[in-house]
Nucleic acid binder design. Structure first.
Lengths: 201, 201, 201, 201
DNA sequence: TATGAATGAGTATTCATTCAT
DNA sequence: CATGAATGAATACTCATTCAT
């Protein structure tokens, strides 16, 4: 958010790379990756078509760059959340809230993450191998720590449970994107926390 | 011409329609929807390119038909599972197991459902409006019945919780598709049931 | 010539391949290979752009096909000329005349052979490796036979001499293409024969 | 600004012009004219892309300049050879040797002359109108002088014969370029002279 | 003179769909 | 019903050239 508002003043300087990336997010979200035209992205960014190729390898590289750069920022944010909270239960709550708060702020970016990045097994694999795996590991370790502290049930399989939590959050985001109503994604944070911690029973 | 009225009864035919649909599943799963060629599907089905257009409106209609027809069969299956079990907790367990069993049997179909059908907001919306909504309603009503029976916690929001359960299952399937190991999807049924029913605590 | 006049009646049938090839010759000769647009060739051939790709692999394949097919026909013609004449001196005269007669009949094709096919070392190599080598071999063997018969000077190096004869003919063709006057290429046959047989002295 | 008038004298400079021209020869020979990138030439010359446009009008002007400047130097060389030898037969021998010696010394330049300059009728015409015509005139006059001196056969048509000699030399160069063996072009001088003077008989 | 970031015109090729047979 | 030859719209990317420093 902070960096975007700075970018809003494109008076002179460069920031061309960022403008292109933001334009790609908007166009991908609006039209879908396959239906998006590079020239449309260029127009939205206010640069010539060829300029995009000075900063990126091509259309696919735009999508990958969006993923990588926002995912890195997101992981850093999660890291800070974790660092500031040692209680496992509170950690889980804060990660859930951070997840829904972050994504709920940028609908176009959320669409790119939830829809466009899942176009093909190729992207899906990219999606899950490094960065998502890191995220799952954070969840898994938090669960393990909770178990070691005797707070979480010992019978839980940490890896499966971490995926389950991620799946819940992912579905909340998808559902929010598809709902046409003007609701806030973060509104689902409390019921999700309740369910994650206590289950149905 | 003369034979047309006889053939107009599509009850059985040569099974060409089914062969085309199956071929589409395989090719979409193998190559991805956008990269799949209609001619490739025709070759795999053993028919001429043009023949596909006698049974379907086009490439997109193939994808939609795959979704609709398998989803309908799936919903019927879930209906039978539900019908045979009145205890809410057992129902949840059986639905979870049925979900993972069904999808775990057909990897190509699973890929089409998890990856190819999420290509665009258009498909996603289609995906969620009718059939998935039906599925979520089944889950939601089961949760509500459990609450009314005093078995499930009253503080749960049934709609959010139903989505959460769906999200968990969806993530298990996605994770299974992306894992290259030869594991069975249904192996995750027990830990998922445990987590859904009891939560972390 | 004969086959072309048949093609002139494109009433129905196919002959689409030949029409495309002829159109390519005309367009390549007119505009140059690199500046020629595939769509221009399609228009000249009276087919859709895509149709060209049903018969050829692409633009480059058009050029190669023109070369191969006309060169094969030409080599067969030379073979018949050779077969009908056993006297080495007369053979040389007849080959020279055949070369200049054949090429002098089709200016556009001549341009493709003399100019467009020499665009790059790649084409040049293709040009010289198989078919042109065959042609040079015919000349070389004729020279050797003339030497064995005691008719041609024994001190000549057959390979170099064959190339020299080819070079003379090639230059006559190039010069004819570049001359804007309306002269006949075959007019140079007699002086060339005289020079080839007797030299300057 | 102040230095510009001083620099306007292009007499010497930093030799940048020559470096660019040499780089163009190497790159054109390596990659072919159409596939060569101006930026590649700039890199090879050690200058910025834009600098090339301070010395030349564009890519095409580079090719034309290469041709003109080397052709001029070559014609001066032939002029000296001619001037130093009054016997027509010896002149022919010396011109042939000079041609093959000069070109045999610079393979990259030879490729540009034999291949790249024959890309289009436009270049071909340029090629033949002024400078090549001068060269052919030198050959033709030498032949005519030989005829007037009673040394060369009177029945030869000087113009055609001059082209024939040029064609022989041109083919030797082309053949040398295409041969991958490490032979010297000047080795063909003696057999060529023999053939040119005496013919086949 | 020199730079090199930015421009934007230009095009081969693919492939979903049609329709004459 | 079935075929498959023909269609033609649609688009990412390259690179010669420019011009503000």
């Amino acid at each position: 958010m902070a960096t975007r508002s700075v970018e809003t003043d494109p008076a002179k300087g460069t920031g061309k790379r960022e403008r292109i990336l933001r334009a790609a997010i908007e166009v991908f979200a609006r039209t879908g990756y396959f239906n998006s035209k590079v020239s449309e992205i260029a127009k939205e960014a206010g640069v010539a078509d060829g300029t995009i190729y000075l900063y990126f390898l091509g259309k696919e590289d735009l999508l990958i760059s969006i993923f990588r750069e926002h995912m890195r920022a997101y992981l850093e944010g999660v890291g800070q959340v974790i660092a500031g909270e040692r209680d496992p239960q509170a950690r889980i709550r804060k990660v859930i809230r951070f997840h829904l708060d972050s994504i709920g702020n940028d609908r176009a970016l959320a669409i790119v993450f939830q829809v466009e990045l899942r176009q093909s097994l190729k992207f899906m694999s990219l999606f899950s191998h490094q960065e998502v795996a890191d995220y799952l590991n954070i969840l898994r370790r938090t669960i393990e720590e909770g178990q070691q502290a005797g707070l979480f049930r010992a019978s839980l399989q940490p890896q499966v449970t971490a995926k389950a939590v991620f799946g819940i959050l992912d579905e909340m985001v998808t559902s929010w994107i598809l709902s046409e109503k003007d609701i806030r994604l973060s509104d689902s944070a409390d019921p999700v926390c309740d369910f994650v911690l206590n289950g149905l029973l």
